[in-house]
């Protein structure tokens, strides 16, 4: 689980994949540096027990590839970098997440009755760009 109590852990579970992919996209990096980058981004540092199984799954799915560097006096360090498949996954998930976040914002910030009406739902499905202007006002 992620340490930061400010964000509910079930929210973070939903976005951890995407955020870790984004951090790896910046260049070859390793487990603890990814955790530190997530913390610096305000998401809290994930425990090793959460992060490494996720990196292992990324590797099996060919989203990332890894390389070991020799360690001075230690067993070494494993660096992850994004594959082409991983880059595609990051791009498509980022686009999907943006749409999803906008939909959630609309749902939360508009009149609940209007948000649940069939007309609004149809508008949401057919034209996601119409809700992209909604400002996200919720704070942690």
């Amino acid at each position: 689980m992620i340490n930061d109590p400010a964000w509910p852990s079930n929210w973070l579970r939903g976005v951890l994949d995407l955020c870790v992919l984004r951090i790896i996209a910046a260049g070859p990096t390793y487990g603890y540096a990814i955790a530190a980058a997530l913390e610096a981004a305000g998401l809290g540092a994930p425990k090793g027990g959460t992060l490494y199984p996720l990196l292992g799954r990324f590797e099996r799915d060919n989203w990332v590839e890894s390389q070991w560097s020799a360690g001075a006096g230690g067993p070494g360090r494993k660096f992850y970098s994004l594959t082409e498949t991983g880059r595609g996954e990051l791009a498509s998930q980022t686009a999907r997440w943006s749409q999803f976040a906008a939909v959630v914002s609309t749902c939360l910030l508009q009149n609940p009755a209007a948000a649940s009406s069939p007309k609004t739902a149809a508008a949401r499905d057919s034209a996601p760009q119409t809700i992209s202007h909604v400002e996200l006002k919720a704070q942690p």
Partner: peptide, 30 residues
């Protein structure tokens, strides 16, 4: 093992703090 070792060395946590119970962590790596 090497990756877990690198993590605890960098984070200053114990293995149990960082990864929880060893059998559960071994299972989660799949």
């Amino acid at each position: 093992l090497a990756e877990a070792d690198d993590h605890v060395k960098a984070s200053g946590e114990t293995a149990a703090e960082a990864f929880g119970a060893p059998t559960a962590y071994a299972d989660s790596l799949d």
